[in-house]
Every structure is written in C-alpha cells, then in structure tokens.
Write a protein that binds this DNA or RNA. Sequence first.
DNA 1: ACCCAGGTGTTTC
DNA 2: GAAACACATGGG
Length: 215
Amino acid sequence: MPPSISKARVQSLYKRLHQHFGPQHWWPAESSWEMMVGAILTQNTAWTNVEKAIASLKSSQTLSIYSIATLPRRRLEQLIRPSGYFRQKARRLRLLARAVLKDPCVTKDRALLLSQHGVGPETADSILLYASGQPIFVVDAYTRRLGHRLGWFKTDDYHEVQRFFHDRLPREAALYNEFHALIVRLAKAHCTSRNPKCRSCPVQARCAFGKRTRS
DNA sequence: ACCCAGGTGTTTC
DNA sequence: GAAACACATGGG
C-alpha cells in the first residue's frame, strides 16, 4: 500500500463530506440488537427493503433476541421476506440470537463475531462500531469504490483497505461512525447507476459513484 | 427487460 | 488460492 496518500487528504475528504451533508446520526436503529438485525438483513440488499423487514418484525412483536432465537423458522422467514435472501438470513439471525443469548460478549468480540455463520468482516465491524462503540473502521462496497475512483488504493482486500483508513485517521469511534455513514450518504445522494450526471459533488468534479465507469 | 443493492459461504478451476 | 456461483426481494 503506497503511503503516498497523506492523512491530510483523507481527513479533508471527511471534512468536505461532513460540511456538505451534516451529521448522519448512525446507525438507524433503536437498540443494539435492532442494529445487529439490520446488519445481517442489509447484506447486499437495499436499505429500503431492510426497513420493511424490520417494520414487520416490530409490528408482530418479534424483534427481541429471544423471539428471533425461538420463532419457528418458516415464520421468521416470512416476516423478513422483503429483505431478500430470506431463508439464509432467517437462519443467520436465529444463530446469532442464540449465540448472544448464550454469551452476550459475542457482541463485543471480533473473533467471536467472525466465528458466527453469516457474519463476515463487514458485518462484524459494523456491529463493533455501531452497537459496541469500538473504534473500528467499516469497509463496504462504497468505501472500496470511492477509494478506487480517487486513486487512493487498488486493492479489494478488506483488511488492506481498513488499514489504509486506520493509518490515516485518529482512532475515534465517533469519527469512524460519521465517516462511514457519510460515504453511504454520498452514494445514495449522488451518481447512482442511472444518474451519471453529478453536480456539486463534494468529492470531486467527476463524481466518484456509479457502479459502471463511464467512458 | 435489464441493473443494482450498506455480503457471505460454498463450489469449482 | 483466486474466481465463479448461489442466495431473493424491490426499486429505478
């Protein structure tokens, strides 16, 4: 990883994003457990779909750890159906709920989180940052895309990208919280797949988002 | 009728 | 080991 990108550049991007969008107040959840449920449900899925699934859990009074741990599999599947991959995710949620009931420390320990089926590095780090307040930078598809477009790094490796940010930012949970939220905000606000025109982009004149690279 | 979304686990070369 | 595939719904 070339150290050629300075801390100042990375911190300057953060400042511009924060200036432009303001504080994001993440994670959008009312409790740590709801946050964890959202983290599983949002895997490769649009957040609007996750909202539907969470709303259906809430309205049926089945969002609690105990409910999700004990609900019949088919019932849980139907409740979270709008979030997609509903069979996989029902199983993952149930396993996670049971693990947390057995040992609440799971929520705070990276190795324990990663040993849960269906919890990979991004989900684990999201939980550590947003549910446990630990200063761990979360890397997602947007973070990689942004870094690539800005020429900051070429790698796709999760931990290499994470190290890039860890090396250039003070170790503060509040900062990592906002930064990641702002990157997601940027992705939603600016060039999405069908919107190649991007005015007043806080990142650069030529917008850093849009999955396809335009010619 | 495509393409995409706040990944992860399994299978295949 | 990397690369390809399966998983599924809903919105643009």
